[in-house]
Design a protein around this nucleic acid. Structure first.
Length: 616
RNA sequence: GCCGACAUAGCUCAGCGGUAGAGCAGCUGUUUCGUAAACAGCAGGUCCUCGGUUCAAAUCCGAGUGUCGGCUCCA
C-alpha cells in the first residue's frame, strides 16, 4: 500500500500540470499530504485559494490546516465571528477572482526556524504549532530540523508540502458547500475552528454530477423517506430512539423472520436476557471501567443497574446454567436483544446513530477444533443473507493489536484458522494488521450501496478470552477434563435500525417484493368493484401476501399515483372486465403492465416470488 | 458534549415588530371514472418551551429542548 501510494505521488509529480513535489522527504510525509493525483492537487490548491480569500475578507484570520479530501477540500479558520451563508458566497466570489487572475503557484524552501519566525510575526499560532511539531519530530528521530516548503500564489503564501497545480487558473469548477465547527487537531480540549467545506472538479459536468449525487442522496435520505413512507418517526421524549410505525415494524419483522429462518436451519437456539442488569455484571465483564459513560444507569433500593449496552456477558449465564459436554458444542445462542447506549447528543443521526437498537446478535461457543468450520459457515451466512438484498459483502480481517489480553498461542491459532477458513470458503479479504479488538481478532463486513457509499455492516469476533476466561466458561472433554471453549460474537444485520436505514437509502424506498411493507394495492375503479377487490385481497392474504385495497372514492388514476408514491411493488386495477373473468393484470411500480391472470394463479405466483427473497 | 444553522397546520414551506398564510393530506358534498393528481366547500395552529425588551413579539434578546451540518482524511 505504501509503495502504491508513493508510485502514485511520483506519477502525479511527473505530470506537467503539477508543480513538482519536494524531492526530499519520505513517502509517508507525501502520503500525509493526501496529494495523490491531479484532482487532489487541484483540490488542495483550491484550499489555498480559499484561505487567500478568507484572509482577504477577514484580516487577522488564523489558519489551521486545509487538505484535499474525498470529493473536495476544506480549510479550518479561527475567525472573529461565525460565518454565514452570505459569507460563503463572497468567499467563493473572491476565489473566482483569484482563479481568473491565474496566479502561478511557486514553491519556496525556507529553513524551519526562519519559517517559524515569519509565522509568529504574522500571528499564525497554529502554523507555529505545526512547525514546532515538525522540529520536535525531527529531533526525536535524531535528525536536524527540516527545511520547510511554502507555496505562494499571488499575495498568499502557506506552509505546505505540495504538490499543487501550476497556477490558480488550473483550478476547475468549484463550489463551497458548508461551514462546520471542528476542533483544532480533532481534540475537544483545543479551540473550535470554523471549517469550510468545498468541492472542485475537472469539468463542469463532473461538478454537476457530484451535486446531483448529493441531491439524490438527500432525496433518498432515510429520515425523509421514513416520513414519506410512514415507516418510523422520532420524538423529543426519547431522543435517538425510533418509534416504529406499522409499516416500518412490518419491514422489521420481515427481516427478523428471514434471519430466524436461516438461524433455525443453522442450528441456532434463540434466547432472551434481561435489559436491566446490575453493575456487578459490568464490573466483571470490564465494561464498567471502559464503557460506563455510555451506559444508562438506573438506581433501585440502593443498587445500581444499567440498561444493557450489549448482550454478550449475559449469554454466558445461560452457558453456565449447566455443565457442558464437548458433545454439546457448538452451542449457538442468538438473541434479538434491545440495547441502549448513551451516545453523545451531538452524534445522534436518524436510524444510523441511535441510543436504542436491536441487534441480530449471536454468541457461538465452539471447541478449538470446530472453529474453522464454524467460521466458514458464518461467512456463508453473511453471503446468503446479503444476497437477499443484492448486496455484495466485502470482508476484512483484523489481527491481534499491540494491547491484547490472552494467550499469544491461542491468538496465533485463531488467526491462522480464520485465514484458512477464508481460503476454504473461497473468499478474498483485506488484511488489517493489529486492528482487532483487545480480546479478539475480527472479521468486518462492508458493502457499497446503490450510490457507491461504503458502510461497515456485520462483524464476526473470535473471542478467546473475554467471555471464556472472565466468565470462567468450561466444557468437559472426552477425557473428562475441563476445557475452555472459544466464543464467537456475530451479528449479520448488526443493528436492525441501522440496517433498515441503509436499506431505505439503498433501494430509495422501493423495497424488493419480499420485504415491502405493502406488497400489492388493489384498486377498484368504481364503488361497484369494491366487493370484488376485497375478495381478491382475501385470496392473496391466504397466501401470506401483504395486500391493501384502496377503498377511497378517488379516481383510479389518483390511486395509482398514490400507490406509486408509496413504492408499492404491484398494483391491480379491478374493473368490470377483470371481475367478469375473475382475473387481474398487475402493474409494477416500474410502470410495466403484466398479462392478466386468474386470481388464484396470480396469488400463487406472487407468493412464490415473495418467498424466493429476490433482491429486485 | 462542543461550534454553527434551523424549529410556523399531519407533510413541504412562505411570512421576519402591527388582527396567522399557501400547496398537498384530512373532513363534507358532487362525481363512479380504465393505468401517475376530478370539482367545490369546510375544518385545521399555546407560530418548540420558558423568560425578557416593547404600546404591540411567530418576528428582537436570553436560557432550555429537539433536529440538521460537522468535530483524528493532522503543512
Amino acid at each position: 500500500m505504501r509503495e502504491a501510494g508513493q508510485a502514485m505521488v511520483e506519477q502525479a509529480g511527473a505530470d506537467e500540470e503539477l508543480l513538482e513535489a519536494p524531492a526530499r522527504g519520505s513517502a509517508d510525509e507525501l502520503l500525509d499530504a493526501g496529494a495523490h493525483d491531479a484532482l487532489d492537487a487541484m483540490r488542495h490548491s483550491a484550499a489555498h485559494v480559499m484561505a487567500e480569500a478568507v484572509l482577504d475578507l477577514f484580516p487577522g484570520a488564523k489558519l489551521g490546516i486545509g487538505p484535499a479530501i474525498a470529493d473536495g477540500f476544506y480549510y479550518d479558520f479561527d475567525l472573529p465571528r461565525p460565518l454565514t451563508p452570505d459569507d460563503l458566497e463572497s468567499i467563493e466570489a473572491r476565489m473566482r477572482e483569484s482563479i481568473a487572475a491565474g496566479h502561478p503557484f511557486v514553491r519556496k524552501e525556507i529553513p524551519l526556524d526562519e519559517a517559524r519566525a515569519v509565522a509568529e510575526g504574522q500571528g499564525q499560532t497554529y502554523k507555529v504549532e505545526i512547525l514546532d511539531d515538525l522540529a520536535r519530530r525531527a529531533a526525536e528521530a535524531g535528525e536536524p530540523p527540516p527545511v520547510t516548503s511554502f507555496y505562494e500564489h499571488g499575495p498568499f503564501s502557506d506552509l505546505c508540502k505540495g504538490p499543487h497545480v501550476a497556477s490558480t487558473g488550473k483550478i476547475g469548477p468549484l463550489k463551497l458547500l458548508s461551514v462546520a465547527g471542528a476542533y483544532w487537531r480533532g481534540d475537544e480540549k483545543r479551540p473550535m475552528l470554523q471549517r469550510i467545506y468545498g468541492t472542485v472538479w475537472e469539468t463542469d459536468a463532473d461538478l454537476e454530477r457530484y451535486l446531483w449525487r448529493r441531491a439524490e442522496a438527500k432525496k433518498r435520505d432515510h429520515r425523509r423517506l421514513g416520513v414519506q413512507l410512514d415507516l418510523f418517526s422520532f420524538h423529543d421524549v426519547s431522543p435517538g430512539s425510533a418509534f416504529w410505525h406499522p409499516k416500518g415494524q412490518t419491514i422489521w419483522r420481515t427481516l427478523e423472520s428471514a434471519m430466524r429462518e436461516l438461524q433455525l436451519r443453522r442450528g441456532y437456539q434463540e434466547v432472551s436476557t434481561p435489559i436491566v442488569v446490575s453493575e456487578r455484571l459490568w464490573r466483571q465483564s470490564g465494561h464498567w471501567d471502559l464503557y460506563r459513560d455510555n451506559m444508562f444507569l438506573v438506581e433501585s433500593e440502593g443498587q445500581t443497574f444499567s440498561l444493557k449496552p450489549m448482550n454478550c456477558p449475559e449469554s454466558t449465564f445461560i452457558y453456565r446454567s449447566r455443565l457442558r459436554s464437548y458433545r454439546d458444542l457448538p452451542l449457538r445462542f442468538n438473541e434479538y436483544g434491545r440495547l441502549h447506549r448513551n451516545e453523545r447528543s451531538g452524534t445522534l443521526s436518524g436510524l444510523t446513530r441511535v441510543r436504542q437498537f436491536i441487534q441480530d446478535d449471536a454468541h457461538i461457543y465452539v471447541r478449538p477444533d470446530q472453529l474453522a468450520d464454524e467460521i466458514v459457515a458464518l461467512l456463508g451466512e453473511v453471503r446468503e443473507a446479503y444476497g437477499w438484498f443484492g448486496l455484495k459483502p466485502r470482508f476484512s480481517f483484523a489481527t491481534k493489536p499491540d494491547k491484547a489480553i490472552g494467550d499469544p498461542a491461542l491468538w496465533e491459532r485463531a488467526e491462522r484458522l480464520t485465514i484458512e477458513a477464508f481460503a476454504a470458503a473461497d473468499i478474498s479479504y483485506e488484511l488489517k494488521p493489529k486492528d482487532g479488538t483487545f480480546y479478539a481478532p475480527k472479521i468486518d463486513i462492508y458493502i457499497d450501496d446503490a450510490l457507491g457509499r461504503e458502510w461497515q455492516m456485520a462483524t464476526i469476533q473470535i473471542d478467546l478470552t473475554m467471555l471464556p476466561e472472565r466468565f470462567d466458561l468450561t466444557y468437559i472433554d472426552e477425557h473428562g477434563t475441563e476445557q475452555r471453549p472459544i466464543a464467537i460474537h456475530r451479528a449479520i444485520y448488526g443493528s436492525l435500525e441501522r440496517f433498515i436505514g441503509i436499506l431505505v437509502e439503498h433501494f430509495a424506498g422501493a423495497f424488493p417484493l419480499w420485504m415491502a411493507p405493502v406488497q400489492a394495492v388493489i384498486i377498484p375503479i368504481a364503488d361497484r368493484h369494491l366487493e370484488a377487490a376485497r375478495e381478491l385481497a382475501a385470496v392473496m392474504r391466504v397466501r401470506g401476501l401483504r395486500v391493501e385495497v384502496d377503498a377511497s372514492d378517488g379516481r383510479m388514476q389518483n390511486k395509482i399515483r398514490l400507490a406509486q408514491e408509496q413504492k408499492v411493488p404491484y398494483m391491480m386495477v379491478l374493473g368490470d372486465r377483470e371481475i367478469e373473468a375473475r382475473t387481474a393484470s398487475p402493474r409494477t411500480r416500474a410502470g410495466e403492465q403484466q398479462p392478466a391472470d386468474g386470481w388464484e394463479d396470480l396469488a400463487a405466483r406472487l407468493a412464490a416470488e415473495s418467498s424466493a427473497r429476490r433482491p429486485d
